[in-house]
């Protein structure tokens, strides 16, 4: 029973990781490519980490929860990196399939905000 659950989690995780990278390789402009790794890959690795937590909790006595730490870290950092990358891409005026927004009062350096975002 546990084996079945573990296998399913592992397969789902690997599948999502793969699809994320597939999106990265397959889609046509930077902004659409950004979606695959931020969402699919993050959830994929999340699934694998849950599988790992279940596996070590069952195998050794006492629950193993430190995988939660990595999952949390990933789920917090993935959108931050995505945001920074998208911002850099807008700054560099990369080719985009969607019409890009007008570069409004985007002050090139706003350290206070940036730090806020990275926290």
């Amino acid at each position: 029973m546990i084996d079945l659950l573990l296998s399913l989690l592992i397969l789902a995780g690997a599948m999502f990781t793969f699809i994320g990278s597939l999106g990265l390789a397959r889609l046509r402009d930077f902004y659409t490519r950004l979606h695959g790794p931020t969402k699919a890959t993050t959830l994929g690795v999340g699934c694998l980490l849950v599988a790992s937590a279940v596996f070590f909790s069952v195998r050794e006595e006492g629950i193993s929860l430190h995988e939660v730490l990595v999952s949390l870290f990933l789920f917090i950092t993935a959108p931050v990196s995505a945001h920074l990358l998208a911002k850099a891409a807008l700054h560099l005026k990369l080719k985009s399939l969607a019409p890009t927004p007008a570069p409004d009062s985007d002050s090139p350096s706003n350290p206070a905000l940036e730090r806020d975002r990275a926290d």
Binding site: A14, P37, G44, V45, L85, L92
Partner: peptide, 22 residues
């Protein structure tokens, strides 16, 4: 472009993480 490469590098890090967990 550079952002594509950085994104790829970031994804590689996460993939490595997946491999290590497995």
């Amino acid at each position: 472009d550079a952002p594509d490469r950085i994104l790829a590098l970031d994804t590689l890090y996460v993939n490595t993480l997946a491999l290590l967990v497995l």
